[in-house]
């Protein structure tokens, strides 16, 4: 087990090559690279590859609603409270469309795990995956834009119209924390979109350019650019237009997409990665308890 240590300037050239262990063994300079990592086995750049990956993100973003509700309530200002309630009502209205837009992706991948989703995108072509999931991608981006209270859905905090919505009474560091949280939320939804719909770390030219984490960052940056572009370009929705759009237009649209996609899946058969080798033994006849056993 060799360990790599910080401090070699030459080796700082190839961050990506450093992560792949095949390249480490070649050059001494690259050995002394970063972070004291053991690199005999491939290094997963994830903290945890959860079984329920996508759902865990959904759980945490559902808890993000409380930040806004509490920020408004704690302000001792009834307008801030109403702004916070409106903003959080908008957030959890669009969470439904957000969650349903993933259903087609998860159905195609057969698993909630983020690496399985990218593996499925790899087994289909990245471009085929993108084109087939495109409606879900569009719905996801719209719902994500509303989820992070970003223009055109940012009436609750619009600096040009209301005073500031739920963060009226916050200034300096507390406001900085709220704004940073909003931007981190934006980055997270873009990262998730690039993972699920755009193929994550897969390269757009599969044979020619190698897969690398830089593609993931590039795709995420592109989506962030789209968010910032939207903010400068599009006027904002009025609040009732926003709620109307979320409940009466977006949710039926994503429901129709889910029905369509599941019909296509049932018709064409699923084309996904091989099933996990654990099966339910003794399929239970009606009325009996079904037993779970590990296949040894």
């Amino acid at each position: 087990m060799r360990r790599l240590w910080l401090g070699d300037v030459d080796g700082a050239i190839a961050l990506v090559r450093a992560i792949d262990p095949r390249f480490i063994k070649d050059s001494k300079a690259q050995e002394r690279l970063m972070l004291g990592l053991r690199l005999d086995e491939p290094l997963a750049l994830q903290i945890a590859d959860l079984n329920v990956g996508v759902l865990a993100f959904f759980a945490v973003s559902s808890l993000g609603v409380y930040g806004i509700v509490l920020a408004g309530y704690a302000s001792n200002n009834k307008y801030a409270l109403l702004g916070g309630l409106r903003s959080s009502a908008q957030m959890f209205s669009y969470e439904l469309a957000l969650g349903m837009s993933w259903v087609s992706v998860i159905m195609a991948a057969g698993s909630f795990r983020l690496t399985d989703i990218v593996a499925t995108a790899e087994s289909w072509n990245v471009w085929v995956w993108f084109i087939l999931q495109f409606p879900a991608f569009v719905i996801y981006m719209i719902a994500a834009c509303a989820e992070v209270n970003r223009t055109p859905f940012d009436l609750a905090e619009s600096e040009t119209e209301l005073v500031a919505g739920f963060h009226t009474e916050y200034s300096s560091m507390k406001f900085a924390l709220l704004q940073m949280a909003e931007y981190i939320n934006m980055i997270t939804v873009c990262a998730l979109a690039s993972n699920m719909f755009l193929g994550g770390w897969l390269s757009p030219l599969p044979g020619i350019l190698p897969n690398s984490p830089l593609w993931f960052f590039a795709k995420m940056m592109f989506l962030l650019f789209v968010f910032i572009w939207l903010r400068a370009t599009v006027p904002r929705f009025r609040y009732d237009q926003l709620m109307h759009f979320g409940w009466k237009r977006l949710i039926p649209a994503v429901a129709i997409w889910v029905v369509f996609f599941s019909g296509m899946t049932a018709f064409f058969g699923e084309k996904k990665s091989p099933p996990t080798t654990i099966a339910i033994a003794n399929q239970a006849p009606a009325g009996q308890v079904s037993r779970l056993q590990v296949a040894k």
């Binding site: 959860l50 079984n51 759902l55 959904f58 559902s62 808890l63 609603v65 509700v69 009502a89 969470e95």
Partner: peptide
């Protein structure tokens, strides 16, 4: 059951309790 754990957070802590908070505040 990690799946049920995540569902608990999404459904209960993320939706039902938000509803409760809304009603209490309103």
């Amino acid at each position: 059951s990690g799946f049920i754990a995540v569902l608990q957070v999404v459904v209960y802590a993320g939706a039902i309790m938000v509803l409760f908070l809304f009603v209490i505040m309103l």
